[in-house]
Write a protein that binds this DNA or RNA. Sequence first.
DNA 1: GCGGGACCTCAAGCACAGTTCAACTTCCGA
DNA 2: TCGGAAGTTGAACTGTGCTTGAGGTCCCGC
Lengths: 149, 149
Amino acid sequence: MTHLTIGHLAERAGVATSAIRFYESRGLVSSVRTTGNQRRYEQSTLRRIAFIRTAQRVGLSLDEIAEALDTLPDGRALTKADWRRLSTAWRPRLDEQIERIERLRDRLDSCIGCGCLSLRTCALSNPGDEAADRGPGAAFLEPHGRRAR
Amino acid sequence: MTHLTIGHLAERAGVATSAIRFYESRGLVSSVRTTGNQRRYEQSTLRRIAFIRTAQRVGLSLDEIAEALDTLPDGRALTKADWRRLSTAWRPRLDEQIERIERLRDRLDSCIGCGCLSLRTCALSNPGDEAADRGPGAAFLEPHGRRAR
DNA sequence: GCGGGACCTCAAGCACAGTTCAACTTCCGA
DNA sequence: TCGGAAGTTGAACTGTGCTTGAGGTCCCGC
């Protein structure tokens, strides 16, 4: 069985079938159809989905992931080299995320110490080093309603 | 001038007026009205907003923030002690966030080393220690369209 | 060959945190 | 007093990542 039904793929990849159809609508995965119009997936799709989920955990949006997948040599079959190349690119992103939260935590600590909250001077109230009026601050949200399966 | 217009408050707090009205609709801040039905805010609202924004950066949803604000002694005027108490409660949350991303990064490193992507064994593809089929993995997204002002 | 579980499509809905719009009113300085 | 900036409301829209539902079709084991 080189071809998987959407249900089997979903089960093995640990995502909902609706999510897979959604990914397909976004061009992140592809399938062939049976004569009865049902989707059939190659084994490699399992890798693609693993890639997608991991990339999401790194903080990439589906659009960015699609873009990354599009840069693949000739558009198919994720190889080890691809994985290595792309995951290397993620590394700084994670480092940055960690750094941001650490910065916030440290400020929180100093504010706990001073009990300040004086808006003009408190480092916490004033993101400062992140160009306050240009970018968003570090905001890390758990994904809403998402759940495996 | 003990009372601020919504525009001044917005400017000093570094948020959009629409956000303030939104917070008010959610019960996060309150105002009194002029005879002409315009909102007027107390200085302390500035602190409340600073609190809200910081809490968001820690990863709390507006609902959780509202809940925290509701636990205040008698419902008004954020004090230093309140701040200390609440920010102390955030600390573990930040530590946890950092730990999660670090774990992901480390896995990424080991996967870069092995170039694996063999779905059954790769630690990256298999969140494992986070009870894979129950909770969401660590996913940290930048807030969409948010922008100071 | 038949029954029910798995699959199909398309549209709508959800959650979050706001922003934008239209149509209108109020406020304040010159 | 007048005019434009700033304020008001409610409804609709944004973006992300899916899920849910309705109404119908397919596939496979017994």
